[in-house]
Design a protein around this nucleic acid. Structure first.
Lengths: 198, 198
DNA sequence: TATAAAAACGAACATACGTTCTTTTATTTT
DNA sequence: AAAATAAAAGAACGTATGTTCGTTTTTATA
């Protein structure tokens, strides 16, 4: 046997990425074998190396792509909002939506940080920090304008992110609660948490 | 060579548990090799089997012990509190304290769920559900008494747990914020989230 | 249409893994 | 003090893993 009829590099690579994403999400990077991945895509193990350099590079590629897309989408979602309250609402809605829609990428992006080689990890950690800084800036602005009352901006940032991100680990898109309701509930939780109202 | 002078079963098992906890926390269950674990404890790989049955059993043992301790400690912490507001404060304080002190156990207890054999996983998932139910009950009571205004108790439960648990992934005990301040901040965040105040 | 490049196969390599087994020595029990 | 048990060593087994390589066939280029 040899090259298969109809085979195309771009298509195969996309299939490898998708299958890799799913397998790493389900079993973890270490537990995913390239033989299993190859079988899923319909290839022999060695043939994977026509498309990826190493297993590690595939992982980094998946996470890096995710982080870039996440940041670009966020900046688009925040465009046009100037008032801190509106920005915070926009952030919350975006974060929830994205984390529900890209559940697997998000999960891998944090759970598999430790599976990355040090240099690769550093790059991703930097991008994560940039994302956090966006929320930090909103809280800072709201504090300056008097809209928010926050004891410690960094703590509030992490608390909010932790709460919102935690959702994607249990939320069931086909379940009892629809996305709009979920966003509404959390907008209130987040706003109440940073608003003076005693 | 053979049995080492001063060797004792109980001590060695404790050392295996501690080293296993640390290694799984750092690298993940799949990435931790028994050879590395043995080296850490100062044993030959085969000698581990005088103390553990399998690698899988060690993982289950660590997580199961953690869950049992968690539940017992929670019930002790909630004792004596009857008013929903007080119960919720007690829950928050306990949850934070425990999750900061037992960071590694907590992390493994959720991150390595997927590395458990199905039967083992079922047991742990049941215990987790029991823990969640404690918070659910507090919110239900507060809703019945009129102290809390919660749109959906299950959602609020998960949101609160997600927020509080997320903290243990970044909190630095030796850092800028001391534990009391952290608890105070989060008690406010949680209470505001479930209290009517518009 | 001839030639170069791409994409697959299939076999193989070196290594590492969880685990088992036999043997030896230290500790505990009688 | 003798016998039984527990805990370690050390070697080995079978298997699985990431990866490489030579070959073959299909697609793209000239």
């Amino acid at each position: 046997m040899s090259r298969t009829a109809g085979s195309s590099g771009a298509k195969t690579l996309a299939a490898i990425r998708e299958a890799g994403l799913q397998l790493i999400y389900e079993h973890g990077y270490e537990a995913m074998t390239l033989r299993r991945l190859a079988r899923e895509v319909g290839l022999q193990p060695g043939s994977l190396y026509n498309h990826i350099a190493t297993k590690q590079e595939l992982l980094f590629d998946l996470i890096h792509n995710h982080m870039i897309t996440l940041l670009e989408s966020l900046d688009k979602a925040l465009e046009g909002h100037t008032a801190p309250v509106e920005s915070l609402k926009a952030f919350t809605a975006f974060h929830l939506t994205y984390h529900i829609e890209r559940k697997r990428e998000v999960f891998i992006g944090s759970a598999e940080l430790r599976s990355l080689d040090p240099e690769n990890r550093d790059i991703i950690v930097d991008l994560r920090r940039t994302y956090e800084d966006r929320l930090c800036a909103i809280l800072d602005a709201g504090r300056a304008s008097g809209d928010f009352v926050v004891e410690d901006v960094r703590v509030a940032t992490y608390a909010i992110l932790a709460m919102l991100t935690g959702i994607c680990t249990w939320y069931d898109p086909g379940g009892r609660i629809d996305r709009e309701a979920l966003i509404r509930i959390h907008e209130r939780l987040v706003l109440d948490g940073v608003t003076k109202n005693r």
